[in-house]
Write a protein that binds this DNA or RNA. Sequence first.
DNA 1: CATGAATGAGACTTCATTCAT
DNA 2: AATGAATGAAGTCTCATTCAT
Lengths: 206, 206, 206, 206
Amino acid sequence: MSGKAEDRSSKKKKEKRQLILEAAVQEFARKGYHNTRMEEIAQTAGIGKGTIYEYFESKLKLFQAMMEDSLKAYFISLEEKGQKPVTMEQRLTKLVEAHISFCQANKELTRVVFWDPEAFDSELRDWTVSIRAEKLQRTIDLLKEGIDRGEVRSDLDIRIMSEIVLHTLGAFWYPLIVEGWNVDPGVIARHYTEIIMNGIKNNTGN
Amino acid sequence: MSGKAEDRSSKKKKEKRQLILEAAVQEFARKGYHNTRMEEIAQTAGIGKGTIYEYFESKLKLFQAMMEDSLKAYFISLEEKGQKPVTMEQRLTKLVEAHISFCQANKELTRVVFWDPEAFDSELRDWTVSIRAEKLQRTIDLLKEGIDRGEVRSDLDIRIMSEIVLHTLGAFWYPLIVEGWNVDPGVIARHYTEIIMNGIKNNTGN
Amino acid sequence: MSGKAEDRSSKKKKEKRQLILEAAVQEFARKGYHNTRMEEIAQTAGIGKGTIYEYFESKLKLFQAMMEDSLKAYFISLEEKGQKPVTMEQRLTKLVEAHISFCQANKELTRVVFWDPEAFDSELRDWTVSIRAEKLQRTIDLLKEGIDRGEVRSDLDIRIMSEIVLHTLGAFWYPLIVEGWNVDPGVIARHYTEIIMNGIKNNTGN
Amino acid sequence: MSGKAEDRSSKKKKEKRQLILEAAVQEFARKGYHNTRMEEIAQTAGIGKGTIYEYFESKLKLFQAMMEDSLKAYFISLEEKGQKPVTMEQRLTKLVEAHISFCQANKELTRVVFWDPEAFDSELRDWTVSIRAEKLQRTIDLLKEGIDRGEVRSDLDIRIMSEIVLHTLGAFWYPLIVEGWNVDPGVIARHYTEIIMNGIKNNTGN
DNA sequence: CATGAATGAGACTTCATTCAT
DNA sequence: AATGAATGAAGTCTCATTCAT
């Protein structure tokens, strides 16, 4: 009783918005956008159905807000852990490590964020596209710098190279989240970097 | 009139099923499962709403059938073009080429098939998971053979390596389908193989 | 093959109408009007769905025709067995006997005919009402004659008396048809007559 | 305006369920189960279509609930008026009187409740059968007691006798409800008892 | 602010009926 | 005459959103 009362009082203004967003992540992650009912989100959040509408215009807006917040957290997480390194190899390693760590720490969240959202809303789709474009541009910039420094090959099409480097990052989401792989981010990061930098060809002359 | 008559006669039995499947691919691709109404599929197919139910039990069954048929076509397409080559490098190249060609030739279809389907149905999800597992196993087998032949490095974790090799294939779907890239499959295939086999590191000592 | 062909050829014009009616009785009896689909009737009759419409305008008309035919058969059956007797007691006995025999011989049919049809159609309802009115009038006439002959009490309201005499006839339908009572019509008939004529009161002074 | 407001406030919680049930009785009685649309029930109840589903899972469940409630009311009504009498004759008289009174007071309701429901649902049918079995058993018990006391003949088959006594009760439903007979329950009750107890035979030696 | 009962647009699905073969 | 593939009107039920309390 008092516990619930305390919960109530501690959930002041802005905090309730957060509460809803967390419930939304959980529910949307488990069942997808269309199979999640507003009432379920409300229940998970421990509030009334109508209250959600005090903080979000509609189901779609709630979903969008959740995506934005989540991606923001993702990017912050990447930046936090990826500042110091200098060589391309170190950068990539740190990037992957940060990515894997984030995924492991926010399983439910990434299940939604890295889902290619069903085309249920053009506005949302446009936004997703722009996020993707930004990610790609960052990758291109990264590789360009690598080329300038002589660390990266200059004989390949930079766009194609970037698409591969970027997209490969997602290779781990499925085993990590869905299958529950419980590997060390460092191990994956080293494999990723090794392959992307040196390929899988056997050069030992063996 | 004669045109319609011809249509009728040519759309015998099995052909109408195909007609519906094609309409379904188109509509599901454009708007996703939940935003596509059975009536729209019917209209696109040029038939009545009820007719769909003569061929498919329900909307979900139609979707499943479409997925199965599409993936079957995809795998057949891969196998057709990937028989002759012997070295690992040649195999990967052919594989990517076939993948890209299929995507380009079936833009709408791949938009649905390679979407991670929203968790709207557990049966469908299980099936998707099993498809994924099969793809991964094939990749693992491919790389094992390469290791045995001394073409592929043996110092990397084969599972992680396989996940990367497999997943990277999907790197081109977005630019090809959504952005409408119109590149030569061969060029992409060569880049893919080059990077996966040799990495992006500059080894020229430049 | 030849068997089916023979069936076909032997089912000439009017016979196919009968075939459909028999199938209709069976299906309507088992599942009721609304839960019986035209296709099921067609299948039971061993013909095509569209053929029914060659003989009956609509599902409702088919139902009506089935009811009419069935009731006609019922009344004929009653008359056949109820001609000779002279006293009221003998008449009632014969009547019940004929009624029971008909029910036992046409279980499926009576299941439909004696159902109070759901008010799905005003025309049908009117017809049912008129049938009922006729039955009642016959009963009234029967009892009037009995009164005139001094066989029946004259101190009771003839309408109420008639309603009871008539309605009681239906008391046996449920155990006979639904529960599958397998009793001798004569036994029931004697009980009915005994009770209706003499009541259940113990007059033995016991 | 104030009227509507009053309605609202008076229709709290449980009362709306009742409101829906009353509307259901009315509509089902008038048009039968299959010809009654949920929307019509809603309109009659003066509420929205979806509201019904807040109180009842489905159309069928609503129908079942209505039947159960109605029968409960019927049995209560019978028991209320049938306590004091001692002789068999008095009992039967009271029973019929109560039955008739209930029918007259709940015309619409009895139109549904005493309809032999079309076999649209096996669960409902089973329930109906069990109700019937219970009614019959009560009648058998009643007559057994009468036999023990020497009030009822012991030379008749008790099952057949009971079926007749029970079923005859229904003889008045049609004229009362459908034809709108407006007779005194006492008159009918006396006729019923007189006939069932003493029969219709003229014993005056006239 | 918070609530949840009430709402009704909208989607799937059924099935009597039609009509070209 | 017989057929059964095709049709689309109609009905049940869901669920995002509103609004009186």
